[in-house]
Design a protein around this nucleic acid. Sequence first.
DNA 1: GAATAAAGGGATATTATTATCCTGAAATTA
DNA 2: TAATTTCAGGATAATAATATCCCTTTATTC
Lengths: 152, 152
Amino acid sequence: MILSRTSQYAVQAMIYMATQPPETPVLNKDIAERLNVPAPYLAKILQSLSKGGLLSSFRGRLGGFCLRQDAASVSLMQLLQLTEGPDFTQSCLLGLKRCSDETACPVHVRWLPIKEKVIAMLNEMSLADLALAVQSGRYRLADMPLGMMAEA
Amino acid sequence: MILSRTSQYAVQAMIYMATQPPETPVLNKDIAERLNVPAPYLAKILQSLSKGGLLSSFRGRLGGFCLRQDAASVSLMQLLQLTEGPDFTQSCLLGLKRCSDETACPVHVRWLPIKEKVIAMLNEMSLADLALAVQSGRYRLADMPLGMMAEA
DNA sequence: GAATAAAGGGATATTATTATCCTGAAATTA
DNA sequence: TAATTTCAGGATAATAATATCCCTTTATTC
């Protein structure tokens, strides 16, 4: 029902980056501060997103991280497949190794349609959508007293 | 997206118990064996389900565990609220502490309807339903070579 | 009453996840 | 070239989840 903390940080960070002007590297430190998330841990996550091809990273003075692709072309699904593993949507609710339409656990038939809705949602939502929602000011990216959705 | 292993074991165990004649205590050892799950760990889980009011436990020779209520009156939701915590369905997908209709994370609006479907499903499915599904022979409770759904 | 079988409960061990630390490498600026 | 800034990467630490162990209590059987 819930994502790992790693995924939560990753999603928040990616959405935040999508709210920033592209091509201008964003610092891990800044993201961590805005999201109120442990910086060294976030660094590891961003590192793995770079390896996974979603981010570009730059060292040195004007360094930081940029979205490698256009925010509109990155889905939540793509992102979560990196952080949760490539087939995180396929696992059986009861933990069975083999649970398909042919040989299933007893909740399978009821769970399947919901799972498909989840998958569709994850595929449909892009970072651009989410960034826009945040920039509109109606949605928040973090539990913070002071708002973080500036420049639109 | 996925339940804790504890919950998975709990659900499997409860469904299994619901397939057994009521009033006749079932041994932790037997459940563990059938489900292919570590017995000492399962024992802790069953213990907490007893404390939670879903099971009755009996010590001594003819001891074991019984469903305290009729299988038809126990929903998956009830069970999972014990193993995952009372408001496990309310947590924000992105991990925000406060994420309600008024002040929400950017995925909230898309997630909400799905979450409600999940909640409805969990409320609607009873142990009796699931036990019946298993007893029909068309669904499995564990990753086992030899079938476990005997007596109907 | 003694032996046996089961759950109860506390302590401990193992593993995975989350988080921190430190040093090095790359880039920029002066 | 030297100083600074930032990510890279490895090692380590802290925490939480999962799993095991041991001993006690309770009930049954003999």
